[in-house]
Design a protein around this nucleic acid. Structure first.
Lengths: 153, 153
DNA sequence: TATATACCCATTGACGCCCATATAATCCCA
DNA sequence: TGGGATTATATGGGCGTCAATGGGTATATA
């Protein structure tokens, strides 16, 4: 399995450390298993995270934009300056910067939600609420949902 | 990680020294780790900086402009003649020339914003304002944003 | 000599590394 | 196949190291 799936609820200790779920750690390439990137989600009060490989991919794409255009600056600023890298210690724990904790309303506990190629970190109650809301929205569109789920390759 | 990412707020001491963030220093090649180049940003009241190796990259980009255009001269003059090199001391600090501080409105504190292959130095409040503005512009162009953020490896 | 800058040393707080424990999961063998 | 033994995971805490910052002094340059 090379996708972030399932959800986990972990605690933040006195030093601000929290364990990245083991199954998430195992998805990171062995080369860069001790570092992840975090950034504010654009669409929700949550933190998104993934391995550093994804960042390099983004860097390449931005670098291909016209260097002297306004778009270049906007992307560069909004993405690079907003991204933080954080180290994972030998026990699999990392620090969530205060600014990001604030943004997501996280205090002593956090919920990890697998999202495939990345994951989200939520304040536990809000995260669960969001999951329910998503599900409800989907069920309202049963028709399209059925298409999604029954379609064979 | 070999990219300038995240943002940092450091102080300028009485002697005019300011610490280059540790994560930025580590990106500089060990060979030239005690020297960076600085220049006025063309598009904003900020200072841009990078390792000396990037000079070649900048030259290449300018070279790609039409040699007979006004832009070529303008960029060439504005950038190359404005570049200054500055040394980093054993503690990781350097001096920002007065002219550049003036240009960016920097007094006692400065904000470093990672921009991938280079970084920007801002007067803290203005830097934050600029980040917000960039983000707002990008959100208006949802299409391009989606391209940047959703594409998977 | 006066001003600027580099080098050296010191302080403080944050962070990484190491070790420890409890609980859960897995293994392994009789 | 049952159940003890081993391993893995989440969590707690001590302590040394490093980063950011301050300041004294030597060196250089004008």
């Amino acid at each position: 399995m090379d996708l972030f799936v399932s959800k986990y609820f972990n605690k933040i200790d006195k030093k601000g450390r929290i364990s990245l779920p083991s199954s998430f750690r195992n998805i990171l390439p062995k080369a860069n298993r001790n570092e992840i990137i975090l950034y504010k989600s654009i669409k929700s009060p949550s933190i998104e995270g993934c391995g550093v490989g994804r960042l390099k991919e983004i860097a390449k794409r931005i670098n291909n934009l016209d260097f002297f255009s306004e778009d270049y600056d906007d992307f560069s600023t909004s993405i690079f300056s907003e991204i933080v890298t954080t180290n994972i210690d030998k026990e699999g724990r990392f620090l969530i910067p205060d600014e990001l904790k604030l943004y997501a309303g996280i205090k002593t506990e956090a919920a990890f939600f697998g999202q495939g190629h990345f994951f989200q970190i939520w304040e536990p109650k809000q995260g669960l609420k969001n999951t329910e809301a998503s599900r409800r929205r989907l069920l309202k569109e049963k028709k399209s949902l059925r298409i999604m789920l029954t379609q064979q390759k």
